[in-house]
Write a protein that binds this DNA or RNA. Structure first.
Lengths: 195, 195, 195, 195
DNA sequence: CATGAATGAGTGTTCATTCAT
DNA sequence: TATGAATGAACACTCATTCAT
């Protein structure tokens, strides 16, 4: 029962691309490199991706999917919003550490392609999910009312990601990971509660 | 006595590079394009830049210099930290709008040569300057004491830049520029004061 | 009983090929383009043609068939050879106008496979037919005796085709179509009669 | 004294191209083949020709130049128009024999490029030269007056070339070369004189 | 007969970089 | 310093052809 479906080939190419581009960068990675590792023929690449650049949005999408899956899985049970936020921060730091190369390639790749706006559209369901959590927290009285849920969600997500990226990618490690995460947590909590 | 000094040629090449790369992206811009617009010979490029990639840090450096000049100039006079912060936010939004293409090209250059650390070093004096302002605010009692000046400065700078980039580059324009800036301001102020 | 016979598919592919190659040229036309327009699968092409190059002789054959059908149909009734020749010239000009793209593609196929001899063999029945007309004219005393029928037939056919091609393909339109045809006619008639 | 001028490289590339494309055809000849034989680098080709297709008009131009040089040189001295025409026909047969491959590649190449009209423009000075000879012959009373000099010149040139091409390229050699040339001569003479 | 996914060899073209002047 | 002709390595992408179903 040979079951090499189309989905398999798509994934093989995508994973190979992620691995190699993460290592060598987009510019230095050739299609030839990718297909060799994916175990398919040169032409097969173009059955699944319109061009080399078309890889980037696919990689970004993939990253976000993984991120959401991991976070959702780990934040399912939480006593209150602050426990949720703590777990969320931990997860983001952990994911950033694991996928730092992919994150960098998404930033640079989407910029190369002049398609930075795509980030926003890919993030949409992620933003949405966070908004729901935040709304609930407001309803519970854990977060001050009057908060602009939409804007604040994006702000928090970006702030946490930025802190993690500065720590793991920018190698700005004056403090420990724990200290960094604590600063993030308190900075956010102060802003969202009446002390 | 019109004498084309070395500095002139360096700047001519750098400016030409910024213009063309902003338009067409790094990948699609050739040295040939750049020298043509700069009005120098092909080989002259290599008298001033070691390689094509060496342009990116120079462009980034240039952007930071312009940013710091503009901001310093406009924030010289301020009654208190919050007036300073307001002006700062305005300036960042304005600069982001004007230089969005250059910012994008800096992102796209991120991954080249794994130059992420260079990025942080270029930001260093910028961070330093902000830290000084923040220290002063704490000394004045405008900002809660106990704040980690170093971490918080970076956080603020990144948060403001991110909000502006989401607005102008990610084209996330659900709210007006003014509303967006106001949200940023209050989010930060809440976090840095005892209500 | 609508049954797509083999002949149908052969013709569908051939017609599609003629259309697209006429538009885009042989080199820029892919088998993929052809089968898409013909409404058959990629592999089906190879059930009817050995290769892409095998299309050219088939297209040429097709053009000659059409030409002969049209000319025969229109020259059936003629008082004498000169009326016949006049009609013939008209028909060639008209066909050249209608099929100029196909003619060009036949030229472009000339060099492929050094297939020049194939060309002559395709023309054979055409030459033969014209020879019969010419023989008859000589028998009738309309054309001077002593004429080399074989050589002269080819000469005339080529001369008329060339004049038409210069007019429609070379766009050498200093004179009107009518003037051009009249020159051809008189040039030939002078040569074939004692004044 | 190394004197490799630009003209030299242009010619080296052009000659190499003519040789190889004549042998293998345009499609089967790669730029790599050409530059290797020309003894220049890959990139150098593009300093002299915009593209592979740009070779064809250059080759055609070259062929016409050679043709005119040879013919002019050999027809300088002639007692009358008919001696001139005889020599002309001989020359065309001889040139066609020598350059048959180049002729084929010009036909097919220009057709591939959809630039058949270029033929006409390249032929212009050739036509002009023949017209002058023909005018003189009419002035001398050797050729019937009332002849359309422009049209007839083109006709004669094409007729002679066609006969030669049928003989050497189409390999239509039922008769000897001499017979073929004699037929051409008499066919033309009959048409241009009152018998 | 028909299909269309898969193949992988093949190539025109670009362009960063060098170097003799 | 400055030039710009020359280099040649590198690569994305195409497409004729095959073959398992």
């Amino acid at each position: 029962m040979s079951t090499a479906t189309q989905q398999d080939k798509y994934n093989a190419i995508l994973q190979a691309a992620i691995e190699i581009i993460s290592e060598k960068g987009l510019h230095s990675t050739s299609i030839s490199d990718i297909v060799k590792r994916a175990g398919v023929a040169q032409g097969t690449f173009y059955l699944y991706f319109r061009s080399k650049n078309a890889l980037i949005p696919a990689i970004a999408q993939n990253l976000i999917s993984i991120t959401m899956d991991k976070i959702k899985e780990n934040t399912q049970q939480h006593a209150d919003f602050w426990e949720f936020l703590t777990t969320y921060i931990h997860q983001i730091y952990s994911i950033t550490d694991e996928y730092k190369d992919v994150i960098v390639l998404c930033y640079s790749g989407l910029a190369i392609d002049h398609s930075m706006e795509i980030w926003e559209s890919i993030y949409q369901p992620y933003y949405q999910w966070f908004q729901d959590e935040l709304k609930q927290a407001i309803a519970q009285g854990e977060v001050i009312s009057g908060t602009n849920v939409q804007w604040t969600s994006k702000m928090i997500i970006n702030l946490v990601e930025n802190a993690a990226e500065r720590f793991y990618i920018g190698r700005d490690q004056d403090m420990t990971k724990e200290q960094s995460m604590t600063e993030v947590f308190h900075f956010l909590k102060r802003s969202m509660t009446n002390s």
